[in-house]
Design a binder for these strands. Structure first.
Lengths: 210, 210
DNA sequence: TTTTTTCTACTAGTTTACAGGTATTTTTTA
DNA sequence: TAAAAAATACCTGTAAACTAGTAGAAAAAA
């Protein structure tokens, strides 16, 4: 007995990539692209009315965060599997996607063949992560332990430090004592494992904290 | 009389995008995708032997800088027009591409229709920049005047400052007087129009100086 | 070859940052 | 509600950063 045809919905803001996905997936006769959308709103309107097995979801949508879309699909339509797709290999986003119910993840440099395999696999209830993604996730385990959790206030101060505002000025702005600002500053430097404000700002930008 | 068929070569490291381009361009019967490559090397091997009118070039290639590829195409094969393509709208890269002979530039969220228009237009010896790109270039004119020119030494010191290295340490490293480092530091802060090292680092990263 | 820029170095003074503590109050979470 | 985490604040001292000048030597450009 032949497998049922897998109904795939594609969400990507790049028409070129949609075309590419349609063309690539179209090679496999057991997969059918039933709809394509350039934004999340249209996707949900579609899911309300039509059956879909797999959503191929670009994480970098312009209007809404891909992770949120993923979470919403997962809570509202738990039977619909999400296959994440993005250009860049940002470990934190990949991890967030997985946390929010993505069953698989690929980079856009994926081949047609691997794409087909991934779709079938997650449709079968398994998960699929390309070799690259697996490596990224594995590597990030080590770094992850070092990713410091900053408090709200610390993030606030960090942003102001990056603006080049001095401790007395920050204190004035937040209506707290300069001594308090210094304490936050010190904690930030310690948490981030750096030695001064310059490096702190660099790290913060690298970690996308500001 | 009908126009000749435009021979297009596509260079992109994402098979998905290549598929998308082939599929999109394929809709227009007056354009033919004669070859696709995932790296620059294969492209030049092809250009040596075959005729091509337009190269659709992804700027973010993994092996080599897109700007360099553009420059090389332009100097070796001046009759071949380059149409730049990228996901993100980085003004400096777009400008560099134009400087190095790109006849047009599009973002990857381009529609099939616009893509066709762009290819025909640059094949006819005109240039083509999507509305988005034009806006980006226009906006960057103002900023451009403010981009300070740093000397070699200043850039060197800037990088070290961003590493969190202190003035005395930098002096030791470069075997110059700490007073000299201080002077460079001062000039950097003045040139960049900032008030301290933290802001300097932030600006430097934003301006992609480090 | 002159001119300009860049790199170098100095003096002197003020401000800010950073390190190492401690400790109270408030808010969150278990 | 009790315990933990976060935000607040203070003290002391040193090191570094920033401000504001000046200026000679070397390298690059006109």
């Amino acid at each position: 007995m032949r497998k049922e045809i897998v109904k795939v919905v594609v969400v990507d803001d790049h028409p070129l990539v949609i075309e590419g996905l349609k063309s690539s997936i179209g090679m496999d006769e057991t997969i059918e692209v039933t709809a394509c959308f350039e934004n999340a709103e249209d996707l949900f309107a579609h899911l309300k009315r039509k059956v879909a097995h797999v959503v191929v979801l670009d994480v970098n949508l312009p209007d809404i965060n891909g992770v949120e879309v993923c979470e919403k699909i997962n809570s509202k339509y738990p039977h619909v599997k999400v296959l994440g797709l993005s250009t860049y290999n940002d470990p934190s986003i990949i991890k967030q996607m997985v946390k929010n119910g993505a069953k698989g993840y690929l980079l856009k440099n994926v081949s047609s063949k691997e794409l087909g395999i991934a779709i079938h696999q997650i449709h079968d209830g398994l998960s699929y992560f390309s070799a690259e993604i697996q490596k990224i996730l594995a590597d990030s385990i080590f770094d992850n332990n070092r990713i410091p959790k900053l408090t709200r206030r610390e993030k606030e101060i960090l942003a102001l430090v990056a603006e080049g505002i001095t401790t007395p000025q920050i204190a004035e702005k937040l209506i707290i004592s300069p001594l308090t600002v210094e304490t936050h500053r010190r904690n930030l430097i310690q948490k981030m494992g750096v030695t001064n404000a310059a490096q702190l700002v660099k790290m913060a930008i690298e970690q996308k904290l500001i």
